[in-house]
Amino acid sequence: MIVAERKTIPEIVDILKGHKNILVLGCGTCVTVCLAGGEREVSIMASALRIASRAQNLGFKVSELTIERQCDNIFIEQAAEAIEKADAVLSLGCGAGVQAIAERFAKKPVYAGLNTKFLGILEERGTWTEKCAQCGECVLAEYGGICPVTRCAKHLLNGPCGGSREDRCEVNPDRACAWQLIYKRLKDIGQLDRLEKISAPKKWGTSLSGGPRVIVREDHRI
């Protein structure tokens, strides 16, 4: 799941200054689950913007709408009328959602109301943690299902670094040492021999360093 966090009201007010009719547009998928941009958060954000507008005399007229998915044209269509009516859209979708809306409505200012943070999971109620760095070439099979690229602060493929204390990372003692977890997990599943293999330097060309990535499935193209 994509995990995001809201921007502060002063930041958003600064972004929206000069616009009058503002549509706060939520997304019913990942950002709903991470409590950043679903229907409820849209309602809270819209309320806060109305309060800010009246308190600071900004002249905002705020409307609200949440669609199932902002990154999909079929669902974006459902918001077309509301978007056309607005002077600007404050999207509470992830970075992909904001761009999908902006591409579909070329002449409409579309702004991000969230900071898209990472790909992660709900660790416990109210806590999300990063699990995947989307490096483009998954190495999880080699490391017992624990990603050293994401969860080791030094991204070591041939760890551990030797700096961990107990099972804590030396970079941030609040985090578990990924290599401790990898060792324990491989031991539990009887695959410690995997650690005897030296991993070659990773091909980072598959990551974002080569610009935006594209996947084409010929079998699904029309």
């Binding site: 502060t8 002063p10 806060a48 308190a55």
Partner: peptide
């Protein structure tokens, strides 16, 4: 927090 950010 929201109130403070909004100016109340």
């Amino acid at each position: 927090k929201y109130l403070q950010e909004s100016g109340l």
